[in-house]
């Protein structure tokens, strides 16, 4: 804890994905044998709108090096408009995280069920980015 060298550590990333798209995309990436770093722990939600920003805050404060969310492309929500509401919440949360320099550790994507390749590539790029940022300043802290 805290003594890892920047750029040379395995980040812990918590991911929240929508059941109807990105979760299926992750499945597709798996069945089509796409390789991507295994440092994300994915939690399945039923919709973008289910992402309570508290989930993200709690993950970050408990020492996740990165948190990502991924849902259906706007306009393609399984529940018609869940991701429109979710998008506003994510934007508000990101604005708050920006004030403390934590917004780089929170990623949000739109990945549909057919985009297995995009999911694998996104995970690769994300892993690199978080590695570059180094371990989260919150992990070693007594909070």
């Amino acid at each position: 804890m805290g003594e890892e060298i920047k750029g040379d550590f395995e980040p812990k990333i918590v991911g929240f994905t929508c059941n109807w798209c990105t979760y299926a995309a992750a499945d597709l990436a798996g069945t089509s044998r796409k390789k991507y770093p295994p440092n994300s722990r994915i939690i399945r939600l039923m919709c973008t709108a289910r992402l309570d920003p508290m989930f993200v805050l709690k993950a970050l404060l408990n020492g996740a090096d990165g948190v990502f969310f991924s849902g259906c492309h706007p306009g393609e929500c399984h529940y018609i408009k869940g991701n429109f509401y979710g998008r506003r919440r994510i934007a508000a949360l990101r604005t708050i995280l920006q004030q403390f320099g934590l917004d780089d550790r929170f990623k949000s994507y739109w990945i549909s069920a057919s985009e297995g390749e995009k999911f694998a590539n996104t995970m690769k790029a994300q892993s690199e980015e978080i590695k570059k940022l180094g371990p989260t300043p919150l992990r070693g802290k007594i909070l």
């Binding site: 429109f84 509401y85 506003r88 994510i90 990101r94 604005t95």
Partner: peptide, 16 residues
């Protein structure tokens, strides 16, 4: 209230 409304095309620059 902002969280009870939305526009179809908005805020994409606020997401990353």
């Amino acid at each position: 209230l902002p969280f009870t409304a939305y526009e179809e095309d908005e805020l994409e620059d606020k997401l990353r």
